[in-house]
Design a binder for these strands. Sequence first.
DNA 1: GGGAGATTGTTTCTTTGTAAACAAATTTTG
DNA 2: CAAAATTTGTTTACAAAGAAACAATCTCCC
Lengths: 151, 151
Amino acid sequence: MDMPIRTADEVELDRLNSALGFLMRLAQLKIYERFFEEVGEHNLKPGEFSVLWVILHNPGIRQSVLGQRLMIKRAHMTKLIRALEDQNLVSRKVPDGDRRAVEITLTPEAVTRVKQASQWFFTYEESVGANLTGDERQQLTSLLRKFVGLG
Amino acid sequence: MDMPIRTADEVELDRLNSALGFLMRLAQLKIYERFFEEVGEHNLKPGEFSVLWVILHNPGIRQSVLGQRLMIKRAHMTKLIRALEDQNLVSRKVPDGDRRAVEITLTPEAVTRVKQASQWFFTYEESVGANLTGDERQQLTSLLRKFVGLG
DNA sequence: GGGAGATTGTTTCTTTGTAAACAAATTTTG
DNA sequence: CAAAATTTGTTTACAAAGAAACAATCTCCC
C-alpha cells in the first residue's frame, strides 16, 4: 500500500536527479540563501556587487557591454545603474564619440566600498563550497566555465 | 591610454571568473535561454514540468513536501498549483488525517502529457551540455549533486 | 480537556527581472 | 547625400518569486 509521502527525503525525483537545469537551480538557491544568511547586514546584493566589481576593473565601461558580459538585460541594467547612481556609487557620462551610449565609472567612495566588500565576498565564495574538497571545487568551477563558454 | 571597452570579451572580470555564484547564474541563464529557444511551443515551463514530474512519481504528495524538495516557497507553490489546477492538470484533496494539508495528484490527461513532455525534456537536458564531453557532463552533475547535498 | 505553540496553506504586498514599444543617435546602403 | 535599418538606452506594462501577515488546523503539555 502507498503511504502518502510525508518527508522531503522520501520524495522520488527519478531522472530529475541528474538534470543539469534542476541541479543548477538548487545550487543557485543554496548560494543565495547562504549569501543572505551570512552577510545580510552588508548592504550590497550579489548582483550589485558584481556590477560594481566589473566597473571597478573596467572604468568607463558602457552599459550595454556590461550587460552583455553579466547577462543582464538592457531594461534591467537601466534600473540597476539608476539605483547605484542614487546611492552615489556610480556616475554616468555620455561619450562624445557616440551620444547614444553611456559610460559608467565608480565614484571614489564606491571604489573603497567595493574593494572592502570584495574581501568578504570572495571569502564567502570560498566558504559556500565547503562541503566540497578543494579539488572538487576547482573542478566544478572549471566545468562551469567551460559549460558557459568562459575561456 | 585606456580605450573605453567596446566588446564584451574585452571585459576584465578578474576573480569573478571563478566565483561559484556568478558562474552558476550564467549557467542557469544559458539553460533557460536554450530551453525557450528549442522548445518554446511546448507549453510547459521548466518549473511546471518539474512539479508535474515529481507528482507523477509521488502521487498524493503534499504541497509542503513538494515545495521543500523542489525548493519552492509555500506562497509560490500555492500559485503554481492553482495554475496547474486551472489547466486541469492536477487535483487537490484535503486528506482526512490532516485537514490543513493538501494532497496533489495528476489528472489522467496530465499523466499522458507529462510522460510525453519528459521525452523531449530529458533529451533537451542532454543536449544543453553539448559543449562538454560525456565524462565532463557526468562529472558536473555529480559535483552539483554533492554541492547541493543530494546523495 | 484546553490553552500555547507549531504547521499548512492562502492572501497581500513588494522585489526582481523580462518583454515590448519607443526615442534618439548612428551606421548602412542605394 | 538621404532613406532604411541598427544600436543604445529608457519607459511602461507585466510575470515570477519571495516576505510577511493571517486563518485554520493540529500537536504538545499542563
